[in-house]
Each structure stands twice: as C-alpha cells, then as structure tokens.
Design a protein around this nucleic acid. Sequence first.
DNA 1: GTAGCTGCAAAGTATTTGCAATTAA
DNA 2: TTAATTGCAAATACTTTGCAGCTAC
Lengths: 143, 143
Amino acid sequence: MDFSNAIRGIVRAWRAQGRRLTAPRRAVLEALARAGCRADARTVYRLARRMYPKTGLVTVYRTLELLVREGWAERWEEGGTARYELAQPHHHHLVCLGCGSVARWERCPIPVRRGTTVRGGFLVTGHRMELLGYCKACRQVRG
Amino acid sequence: MDFSNAIRGIVRAWRAQGRRLTAPRRAVLEALARAGCRADARTVYRLARRMYPKTGLVTVYRTLELLVREGWAERWEEGGTARYELAQPHHHHLVCLGCGSVARWERCPIPVRRGTTVRGGFLVTGHRMELLGYCKACRQVRG
DNA sequence: GTAGCTGCAAAGTATTTGCAATTAA
DNA sequence: TTAATTGCAAATACTTTGCAGCTAC
C-alpha cells in the first residue's frame, strides 16, 4: 500500500485551512501510513518517535482524532483500545477469531450505495464492514 | 422485538452446562433484552437493578462478557465504552453521524455466505456491518 | 456440602484536559 | 509577531482483579 498520495492530500488540505505543519504532525502522518491496518495510538507513537523523537503521546492522540474528525482516518475500537488507519482507498477487513489478526480486504461486496435512503428516511453516506472467521494459519492449527 | 425466546434458549443452555441461574444473572439477561441496541454496561446495570436491586456493576460486566464469549451477545465499542446487545435475530445497524443514534436494521445486504473462503484461505463464519449516514430528524435539521 | 457466583474495594489501562512554553507562518 | 500547537502532569473514565462471603444445586 502506498499512502503518499493520501498524505500529500492531507498536507495540502491542512495548508489551505491554515493549519500548521509541525514536525510531530508530519511524524504521526508518516507513522500512520507505515503502521498498516488498525494501529493503536502507542504503535503510531512508537513509529512517530523514530521520525521525530520528541513527539509526545498526547499529540499523537490529538492528531489522530483530528484526522478522524476530518474524514482522513477511521477509528475502530477493540478490547478497550482505539485503533486508527487511513481511510483511503476504501477497504474492509478480515478479522481472525483465532489469533485476532486483521487483514485488509480491498473488495467491497456491499450493494447499498451512498445517497440511498433506507428504513423510513435514513440517508446512507457510507458503511463499514468486517468479515469474521479464521485465517489460513488458524485453520491449519484447528484442523 | 421480543427476546423471550432468546432468553429461554440461554437459560436452557446454562442449565445444561451446569451454570447457576442466580437472581443477578436473570436480571442482567432481562435488562439486556429490554435495553435495545447497543446498551452500555451502566444502562444494563440500571435496568437490572430495577429487577434485582442488589445487582452489582461487576456482575453485570461479568455476565455480559460470558454472553459474548458464548455467542449469545455481541460487543461493540464506541467512544471508549463497550456496548452490548443480544445477537439474535441477525441484524445490522444504521448509525447517525449527526446525533449518534443507532437503529436496528433487520435486512442483510451482504452476499458473502458463511463457509465461503476468501483472499487466500480466510474462512468466513460471520460478519458485522453498519451503515453510516443521517437519520430523518438530523436530515431535517441540516436541510 | 461445595463449587460456582457475587460484590466490594483496589488496581490497571486508555484517553482527555489544564496550562505554560514553544514554534510555524 | 502571534495564534496554533505541543508536552507534561494530573484528572477522568471504563473495566478488570483479588478475595472473603454467599448460595444454587
């Protein structure tokens, strides 16, 4: 996955909004892109510090929340921990009930389109889905 | 929604397993059924105490986790809070991005069946989905 | 009778907030 | 210059755990 386009887009939008492009923010962006699917704040923090060691955990939280609020990132919660990832390109997840691993799945089998209205007036603007099951490795162990 | 069948099933299964049907557990079951979609532990606690006032919050947590572990209930996490609901009958959710309300949606538009294998060996046994958008009330306010 | 269950209080963990210092533009 | 941003430390919120007493079976 190459997220350089996504990052460029975010940087451009932030510039246009008058937001400041600080070193910690750049580090969090880069870290989020490298972290893969559903990284928790601590993971992003650890990666961000490689790029800018003075980055603080609080700034990681604040930057991630900013990205979610503006739609650049998605937030998932699992086991009492928030997890984040870049939203684009659209994708879903395969969640293994055996080992807990989460894999990216770029197909989208959901036929409900944006702009559709369902169940008495609910306007659909998006969706999120996960397929639950067992990954190859766990299936081999369980037989 | 009538959950009396679900509750009867749970009680029967617990009996068969040798689990004890204590007053707090009955209260939590009943409370969960009455609470509707995605009730947090405190809501279940409050309702359970109406039926059995000595119910403790810790027991609520423990009973809910037991139900999730055995597949009777589903756990969702939102905003740092775990939310629970009875899993049967199968349904999805309409989540309003305006007011945060969550409505039950009994249709299932997902064509990926249990038992299917996707993406190099991942065996699908279930799924969860939510449609994001705006409820009728919020659409009227936003115009 | 006895294992399983309960509830209190304490501990653990994740996340948010107040605020003075810092810094990008 | 100056308002946005940062990071520390403290506060908050949710959930889990240790353990002694209780109770369904």
